[in-house]
Design a protein around this nucleic acid. Structure first.
Lengths: 303, 303
DNA sequence: TCTTGTTTCATCGGCAACCAAAATACAATA
DNA sequence: TATTGTATTTTGGTTGCCGATGAAACAAGA
């Protein structure tokens, strides 16, 4: 078959997987209806990629029945944008982060010694060396591990330590409220309403196994979004690093459901204030929210 | 000759070069006298390395005449520690940073397009691919460049932009004074006095060509030292990143000598306050110092 | 002319192998 | 016994190559 020259039988590649949710996001935010024509070049430009991976992703969606395809006519929505089920798609949390997560987790659980070499890790986790190096560099960025001068890598003694947790909150407590108060702070009303929807949906839905990850990502998006609105790239970078660190350190929520409710409620309160541009109060609430979170102790895990 | 099995004729390797100043630093801070015996194992342990590179570094120093070597007796200081001339040694500003510096510089000068591929860079700068990748990742860490989703890398539009400068100062203005005021802040008196010496020496010496780099590194050490004293690893990481960013963006001082004097004076004032543990005033001075610096505009360069 | 289909070219990442040198174990000597 | 000298093992940076795939040019059809 000539028409799938560029799509391998084994399925979508990494880039193509990453593209899928973004394409669906565009379809949704554009409010496209059934029958709308998806132009390849336009998508490619908006996604900062060439047509090739876009085509592949579209073909994948066509196979899933989300799109219809007719020769010489391209891809067309087979259903309204907001009815597309998201769960069929691989959530794709950035693969490389997955590995960081796994290694950090193994270290915390004591399955890895405090000092390791690349070779050991390569033997333990079957992965290409360049990938491992990028993983290690990424862990080093958030100070979870450190290159020894000669050979070998040294995990920070205190990954799981309460100390690191405290420092992290101290840091965020400094940056996040300051962002909200920055003169350059400007929040997109659309972002506010979308964020509110997500929180309300989280509160409404029953607690499932996967909710933990969803919750984490929603929280991360909330905090990063606030800082992004201050339009200071360095603050944003710093907070993103914190997010990554926390992602590696605790992906699962162990504080009980009532804390979920409390956290969401606090977020919603902050959003309300920001919707009315009451930034002083919002910043104060944010500060208290972080304080509340920092006071929690993991009840179950014996770290 | 069997005795130099481990030292290649082409000279010290990267690790060995990095070891040289650290060894000399240890000799100095231990206040060793002429004739003192340098034990290999002890050095290796203190430097977190094996004996091999230590030996090589010591042999190098012996060739330079700093040490004497006798068979079966090891290395011995041929002169008192504080009389060792530091300038014969390669200063070694972390090679990888050198490359970042060069690439960032070429971009700023317009010698590189806004969008590049790995292959182009490999052709332009002769370097191994893994090294280039680490350089690019490092530049990405400070938001000077960004990986496109598919192929290619995109320089941030505003490397040299006044905007980035402003954001950087805003960020540091937030973090650095907060560090000084942190409850955990604790400064080593030795650090204070050494830092004061360096500043006084800088003021006393005439302005040479190389003073620019010296000045930059001294400033960096000053600001990083203050933040390090707050004992919050994330604040420290953030400030170190800022330092690296500034190192890449402007290694040369273009504000005139009177600003050098002013800056050093301000630093000394802050050090005085800190010596008396007057942290509130020190923090205020630090804030003003950063404000002063942020208001400067590069007079000469036409970016 | 604009969009899709097809082909070509360049790029990138994985893989295997190589080699300098770092780590380590062992021998020799003060 | 402590320290240096020597040999061995292991590591990690480097190189070259190959295949998958993204980018880009071209062709064809609405």
């Amino acid at each position: 078959m000539k028409q799938e020259t560029h799509l391998r039988a084994n399925g979508p590649t990494r880039l193509q997987r990453d593209l899928l949710p973004r394409i669906i996001g565009l379809i949704r935010s554009d409010g496209l209806e059934r029958g709308a024509h998806l132009r390849e070049v336009a998508l490619a430009r908006r996604l900062q990629v060439s047509r090739t991976p876009v085509r592949a992703a579209l073909e994948f969606l066509a196979k899933r029945g989300v799109l219809d395809w007719r020769p010489r006519r391209g891809f067309v929505l087979s259903q309204p944008g907001d009815s597309i089920a998201a769960d069929g798609l691989p959530p794709a949390p950035a693969e490389i982060d997955q590995l960081c997560l796994k290694i950090a987790g193994d270290r915390m659980a004591g399955r890895l010694p405090i000092e390791v070499t690349q070779a050991e890790l390569l033997r333990r986790y079957a992965m290409p060396r360049p990938l491992l190096l990028r993983v290690l560099d990424k862990l080093a960025e958030v100070a979870l591990i450190e290159r020894k001068p000669g050979h070998g890598w040294l995990f920070s003694p205190a990954i799981d330590d309460a100390q690191a947790r405290m420092e992290s909150y101290e840091f965020r407590r400094l940056i996040e409220p300051a962002s909200v108060l920055a003169p350059s702070f400007k929040l997109d009303p659309l972002w506010i309403s979308e964020m509110r929807h997500r929180h309300e949906a989280m509160l409404a839905a029953p607690w499932r196994e996967t909710s933990s990850i969803e919750l984490f990502e929603m929280n991360a998006a909330f905090h990063e979004g606030l800082v992004a609105a201050a339009r200071n790239r360095f603050m944003l970078i710093a907070v993103q690093q914190q997010t990554r660190l926390r992602r590696f350190a605790n992906y699962n929520w162990t504080y009980g459901y009532e804390r979920v409710v409390a956290s969401c409620t606090e977020h919603l309160e902050i959003l309300d204030r920001l919707a009315h541009n009451d930034r002083e109060v919002a910043a104060a609430l944010l500060r208290r929210h972080l304080d509340n979170a920092s006071k929690l102790r993991r009840p179950t895990e014996p770290y």
